[in-house]
Design a protein around this nucleic acid. Structure first.
Lengths: 193, 193
DNA sequence: GGAACAATCCCGGAAAAGCAGGATATTGAC
DNA sequence: GTCAATATCCTGCTTTTCCGGGATTGTTCC
């Protein structure tokens, strides 16, 4: 479905020739051993291996192929890893035709392209440095993420509910967020959980 | 402290010889250049690099060393990544002596060991089929993840606070969780956000 | 025409989280 | 020995979330 979506987006573009598609890393590599396209749009979540690894492998074997990462999610670590492994750009799956084309054109010129949202995410997470948490704070954070309430955490750690509340306040302050939902989302994003 | 805890757990076991410990990735690698133990118990959070990366590096240089991941938190992505990078097992820090020994013995036989909770977590996230959400529910979920409260969401979507509350209740029910923290964690895990 | 679902709305109450502003002991670094 | 950081505890208050019931309007599918 996603493949068809992209295909239909690109069908209107005369400058684009659709070389083919692969559903697995293995079939992708098999395809590449016969012919090499200019650009690969590569999903991060592939059945048989991570897109991040496949990206690296393809780049090692065929350095001239440009790779653009594709993902639904706007997550810094993935973007960063794809780029580290040789990707030339990153486009979110909800990108418009214009964005996708802009990405392809930019990358073909040898420059890197990050779709707006992805770039923002990268920016936010680079600026927004990972807060330094104490042992206890990490512990409490983990338990919050596990769905425990303050009274439950207090019971588990043999401390007072008010202490848990204090740790929680400090966590919110350190992450500069105002409720649990954002706290958990950021913490997961920063891979602290 | 954690190191001492493990050490004391293993001191009773005559079949175990404690080779040493390292506090940083660098000192670990330095140690390994002199002598190689059979098994490394490796924490995920190390000061100078992620345990996941260190795991990979050690496995590349010394494929015969078995690595067991150690972590306080019970999260699928870490477990998966450690295993992807060559770990033979995964034990939580709150494991009992029996679990730890079982893990070491299993791994020494060349098989993989996941501590009960870790295995459950992995299981849950594989089995735990992604709930089917309606348009509106996805929208509300996204806004919750953005840190908005019910009144704020209501204002943004031009609906009543009670309606937002209903959607929220349905989200909790569909994900089978009891609070926002777990909701967000699962939703991020299932890559719905 | 029903059945099933989605989306909207309501009440009332209990529990939890969040906010502001404290305080005290311990510990490790300088 | 002092200082900063950490971890612990507290009060009082407001807001939000969570829970248990509802109900009404559409739409869509058979």
């Amino acid at each position: 479905m996603v493949i068809e979506g992209i295909r239909s987006l690109l069908q209107n573009e005369k400058s684009i020739e659709w070389a083919g598609h692969a559903m697995t890393a293995a079939s992708c590599l098999a395809y590449l051993s016969n012919q090499q396209p200019d650009i690969i749009l590569m999903d991060i979540s592939i059945p048989d291996k991570s897109g991040i690894d496949l990206c690296k492998e393809v780049k090692e074997k065929y350095p001239s192929i440009f790779i653009i990462g594709l993902s639904t999610f706007n997550q810094q670590s993935f973007i960063q890893k794809m780029m580290d492994n040789g990707a030339s750009g990153y486009v979110l799956k909800n990108a418009t035709q214009e964005e996708l084309m802009e990405g392809i054109e930019t990358v073909m010129k040898g420059r890197t392209y990050l779709s707006i949202e992805a770039a923002q995410s990268l920016q936010k997470n680079t600026n927004g440095e990972t807060p330094v948490l104490t042992r206890r704070e990490k512990e409490v954070l983990g338990l919050i993420a596990g769905g425990m309430t303050n009274p439950e955490i207090a019971a588990k750690l043999f401390i007072s509910v008010t202490t848990v509340d204090t740790h929680r306040k400090n966590l919110l302050a350190k992450f500069d967020v105002k409720n649990t939902a954002l706290l958990i989302r950021l913490a997961v994003g920063m891979e602290l959980i």
